[in-house]
């Protein structure tokens, strides 16, 4: 009889792991709480550093899902740890006896309105990186009306203890540079500013993107945090920041401000955590069995993690983890 593997979360990690586990000849069940597969990837337009369309990657991920039992619009109601398996009850009434569980619950974006000094939800012309990405996809957002001056704020809800997140969200620097270039393509006459603490261009091709942004797109990078945002009579935004390289306070008037929301543990993951009393680190993401060798294992036998459920990750990193998790699950089920 085929063994059951249940995957919680239908983002890139979940889809990739499901595809491989299916090839290993397991009975794979994937649960997704929303009505679409692909997670944040499905909402994205293009991917850094080479501007590949997100849809292409998503299409590859979705091309092999035949034979996988997928429940969309479905949540996990309860999980009970049995002797060697997990008894999982879903919100659609179905009960599954899973021999292994893979948690790919990913991340939620930091709620930018919590960082109130940036004025998200208060001033009309303040949007998040996710909204800008959606605009690139649909070209429809009434907040973006031929802006002449555009600013990007890095590290919104990341590396900020007051926003209860000390950690770096890893992807926002490259995303901001990518989006700065893209908006400059759309509005070539606009001045584009990036307010950063330091730029973490760690991946292959990221540094090139950063250089290109300066040389080809004339994006102006200002090292220093934005202290506050206010609105003038014309509904333009007045940004106060410090340029720490010239040690001077600066003031810029902008038509659009984009907040690079960081990654927070997903609310779906929080629910699973409570059901099984799973461990999380200070940053709120799940604890892995160790920090170097067993990144896909949890402390519970038969329960595995992949992707951003264990901390901020880039898309390629998440996909690697999904493949790695599939192999670990295969080893576990054959021992």
């Amino acid at each position: 009889m085929k063994k059951n593997v249940l995957i919680i979360g239908g983002g890139p990690s979940g889809l990739e792991a499901a595809t491989i586990l299916k090839k290993f000849n397991y009975n794979v069940i994937l649960v997704e709480r929303s009505s679409i597969l692909g997670g944040h990837l499905a909402k994205w337009d293009r991917l850094f550093p080479y501007m590949e369309p997100a849809k292409e990657t998503l299409d590859v991920l979705l091309s092999n899902i035949d034979g996988i039992t997928i429940f969309k619009d479905t949540e996990v109601n309860s999980i009970n740890l049995l002797d060697k398996s997990y008894n999982v009850i879903l919100s659609n009434g179905i009960t599954i006896l899973a021999d292994a569980l893979l948690i790919t619950t990913g991340f939620d974006l930091f709620q930018a309105e919590k960082k109130e000094e940036y004025g998200y939800g208060i001033y009309e012309k303040v949007i998040t990186s996710a909204e800008l990405e959606e605009y690139f996809k649909t070209l429809n957002n009434n907040k973006i009306d031929n802006p002449k001056k555009i600013g990007f704020v890095h590290c919104v809800g990341s590396r900020d203890e007051k926003a209860a997140n000390r950690a770096c969200s890893k992807v926002c620097c490259a995303t901001a540079v990518k989006q700065a270039c893209e908006i400059k393509e759309k509005y070539p006459d606009a001045d584009v500013y990036c307010f950063y603490m330091d730029l973490r261009m760690f991946g292959r091709g990221y540094e090139d993107l950063y250089l290109k942004a300066q040389k080809d797109y004339a994006i102006r990078f200002i090292r220093g945090r934005v202290s506050e945002v206010s609105e003038d009579i014309n509904k333009s935004l007045v940004i106060k920041a410090e340029d720490t390289l010239s040690s001077k306070p600066i003031r810029v008037t902008l038509d659009l401000l984009v907040l690079m929301s960081g990654m927070r543990p997903s609310s779906g993951g929080e629910k699973i955590k409570k059901m099984l009393n799973l461990m999380t680190e200070d940053d709120g993401f799940f604890s892995t069995k160790d920090s170097i060798y067993s990144l896909q294992h949890s402390k519970l036998a038969g329960l595995f993690y992949a992707g951003a459920a264990t901390g901020p990750k880039t898309l390629p990193d998440s996909l690697h983890e999904a493949r790695s998790a599939a192999i670990q699950i295969h080893n576990y089920l054959n021992n």
Binding site: E117, Y123, E228, S230
Partner: peptide, 9 residues
Amino acid sequence: TQLTPVILN
């Protein structure tokens, strides 16, 4: 209060 524009508004 400048950092909390909702109060100012």
